[in-house]
Design a protein around this nucleic acid. Structure first.
Lengths: 296, 296
DNA sequence: TCGATCGATACCGAGGGCGCATGGACGTCT
DNA sequence: AGACGTCCATGCGCCCTCGGTATCGATCGA
């Protein structure tokens, strides 16, 4: 037979009162069933928990050890319902957040600070995923919130998080590597490194439109910006990169501003499913609907 | 209504299987009562723990939080009986040990090492008490084991722990303060500092017998050896001190060997009540009866 | 649209736990 | 020293809870 919660409560009461009668009174019951509870408990443990002296009872050494365990169990059981209710209201819990490598450099730190301001007791789990994988993970409820590039598919809510323009990344030994003046896309006479249309649809489309389809994607395709920078560094061509990536400071790569006529900005959006079952996300979404500004 | 252990076990099983039928099978029961258990649990928490999709079920965020609590409770309940049994056998628990100030310098470290060798997982609580207080505390079950001077009262078991002889402590400016040769008690022409007959009956009696009642206890009485050394240092007289106290190295006090004719040894005993309810003590006592040597 | 799967509900029977009454051991008061 | 009171243990009868069987209802897939 197994130990029951009633036995634990009965045991704790008797241990504190050192008296079966008073303990039973405190538990709103009579003394005989309490005696039987303790007997059953001692039998199932195979250990004597009390010394029955004529006047009242006293804990044995083993009883003292068991009392500590009993108190721990009862205390845990005490707090569990309240903790669960708070989690159900979204006040605590975990928010699973995905971001692209680009997102990490641009706004992740600010975004996390904003999340922490709005739902303070919620912990955040981070994953790095490219945008298409994020949409899939959102649909499968594997993540709660993504930081993605447009276009946002139907059925998701989203919020514009960051806007930045593109700059030109060139190898350090490139003819455009020196100079501060803005350059135009026409100045690039060698090849471009393009974004993969599968992994980075949005940047692919924008860059293709900027450069013109006939000149685009002739050299290499990559879907992750760090990969692209590695290719640039290897001298395989130039690339159009979101400005925030300049903060990475990759060795062997130089950046040039684009002429206003050629400049184009790209956006990053927080994106979530409005019928996610995660209450923490619901709370954050509600907060974002009422106060869409990221800074306070 | 309150949450029961069966509800916790049922909940944990369903959460892991994500399926009521399989969970019920694992719990050796049928599905309907398990459904009712979870319903009752959700009702008493006021929180929905599972999303019932057509195919199987999935934990909600709140359910995930509650699952952690449930696992902690069940794990605690798993280990509690075994821990209690070990405590009942005296393999774990606490041994309350009292010692005199003298005992601390003579053998406490060795004695603790011996205890730790014989009952390794038992923790020791230390108290400093003079011998008469130790006997009282032993009788009141306030301590489990004492390190005392003879005579051992009836009703206690004991073991000789340490034997040492007495040396003469003299002030640094005393005429006997220099020299290495043994001295006799007759060389002491000024006063003795004596042991209190209440606090240190044994040393009082021995010193009185050595020196002779007429010359003893004329200056000061003290029951604690450190106090006596302070009195010696102040130049109030000489004192007979167990040899191990020399290790204290009190400033302003010199020690002289006693001539063989005047030498006398004193003993220190571990002492305990044979019907103590502490299983850790019972185990130690049994071990000491079979292997009385302190060193192995 | 039909069948299979899975959780929810209705009903019934058995076992466990509670209360009442009482026994037995120990300490205390007169 | 004996009677009484206190406190834990035990015997018994009742009720309530919990589990099983049978069935329903909803959802998904073919």
């Amino acid at each position: 037979m197994d130990v029951s919660l009633q036995q634990l409560r009965g045991f704790a009461a008797v241990a504190e009162e050192q008296h079966f009668g008073r303990a039973a009174q405190r538990l709103n019951m009579t003394q005989p069933p309490l005696t039987r509870q303790i007997q059953a408990l001692e039998r199932s443990l195979g250990v004597s928990l009390f010394d029955r002296t004529g006047r009242g009872v006293r804990l044995t050494a083993a009883g003292g050890v068991f009392l500590e365990h009993a108190h721990r169990v009862l205390a845990l059981l005490e707090v569990a319902p309240e903790a669960t209710r708070r989690a159900a209201e979204g006040q605590t819990g975990t928010l699973r957040l995905a971001f692209t490598a680009i997102g990490a450099y641009a706004v992740l730190a600010d975004f996390l600070a904003m999340v922490n301001r709005r739902i303070p007791a919620v912990s955040v789990e981070l994953t790095e995923l490219v945008s298409p994988d994020q949409y899939e993970a959102l649909a499968n409820l594997e993540i709660d919130l993504g930081m993605v590039r447009p276009p946002i598919p139907d059925g998701f809510e989203s919020l514009l998080v960051h806007t930045e323009d593109l700059v030109l990344a060139v190898p350090a030994d490139h003819k455009l590597a020196t100079g501060d003046a803005p350059v135009t896309l026409a100045d690039v006479t060698d090849e471009y490194i393009g974004y993969s249309p599968e992994g980075s649809r949005y940047l692919h489309d924008i860059c293709a439109a900027m450069i013109g389809m006939n000149r685009y994607a002739v050299s290499q395709l990559a879907s992750q910006v760090p990969t692209m920078l590695a290719l640039v560094r290897a001298g395989l061509g130039c690339a159009l990169i979101p400005r925030s990536i300049m903060a990475m400071g990759v060795e062997g790569v130089r950046y040039r501003e684009l002429d206003a006529a050629d400049a184009h900005s790209v956006t990053l959006h927080a994106c979530w499913s409005p019928d996610s079952p995660n209450p923490a996300l619901q709370r954050l979404a509600e907060s974002l609907r009422q106060q869409p500004q990221l800074e306070e």
